[in-house]
């Protein structure tokens, strides 16, 4: 398992700086000027109700879409291509029509890794995620839970500095959710920065070191987890923690 942790390669492209990030589409501003710094060594959970902009924020950070305003800065990149040092796991796993092992191999080949190295990494991540016995099976025949594990394995094999996870357990049952969370913690232990969105409070409590609370496209607060769950700094977060709807009359942005 030591092969999966890569202490020599300290999270190089971090910290991630968001500077006045704005995203607008169809005449609506969906991300309204988010400024934050995300540093290595902690699990950052992006929390908020549906439609708060969590998925959009992750996609912007990962470079899948371009912001219409503001900047994304990988402060430690120093000439390296940040795109090659990050990975993302989506809410619904996207499996290629080939075997489980070949799915991992595909991602590794795009990074131009040598065959022996690829074989070793495939072996490591499939063993670590409990998918080794499925190695030669078509990936699309796996259950959704196992497909999500494979998506994690595939991302893990890339040994990214940062792993984005967009509600990775939203469509999974409790057992699969727990398995996925365990894998996330092990990827974190290997030195990969975890940035994950969820609307599940219990999951946020289990995984967060710090919480970025989003509400209607704004970053309300970025708070260490213990503080956030006991004494959130903003009214929006307070309502969310109590499971209440935010009152429409007290809407901040008209």
């Amino acid at each position: 398992m030591t092969a999966l942790t890569d202490p020599a390669a300290a999270p190089a492209i971090l910290p991630l700086g968001l500077e006045g990030l704005v995203f607008a589409a169809g005449g609506k501003t969906l991300i309204k000027g988010i400024t934050a710094t995300l540093s290595a060594g902690s699990r950052s959970i992006v929390l908020g109700p549906n439609g708060a902009g969590k998925t959009l924020l992750l996609r912007l950070c990962h470079g899948l879409i371009l912001p219409t305003g503001g900047r994304i800065v990988w402060k430690g990149a120093a000439g390296a291509d940040p795109a090659l040092r990050q990975a993302m796991v989506f809410q619904r796993p996207v499996m290629l029509r080939r075997s489980v092992a070949a799915n991992v191999d595909y991602a590794l080949r795009l990074r131009d890794l040598a065959r022996a190295d690829r074989q070793q990494r495939i072996e490591d991540v499939l063993t670590a995620t409990g998918l080794r016995r499925f190695a030669t099976q078509p990936a699309r025949l796996l259950s959704v839970g196992e497909q999500q594990k494979l998506a994690l394995a595939r991302a893990w094999a890339l040994r990214p500095d940062v792993l984005f996870l967009d509600e990775p357990t939203a469509s999974l049952d409790p057992a699969a959710t727990r398995a996925v969370e365990e894998i996330i913690l092990r990827i974190d232990a290997g030195g990969t920065k975890i940035i994950m969105s969820t609307h599940d409070l219990a999951q946020a409590r289990r995984l967060a070191n710090e919480v970025l609370f989003l509400h209607r496209g704004r970053l309300c607060e970025q708070t260490p987890a213990p503080v956030f769950f006991t004494a959130p700094r903003t009214a929006e977060a307070g309502y969310f923690l109590e499971g209440k709807l935010f009152p429409q009359l007290r809407r901040i942005n008209p």
Binding site: G63, L64, A83, L84, F90, Y106, L110, R111
Partner: peptide, 11 residues
């Protein structure tokens, strides 16, 4: 179906 995943792989 594959666009974002392939983009994420930096393909």
């Amino acid at each position: 179906e594959y666009r974002e995943q392939l983009q994420s792989f930096a393909a």
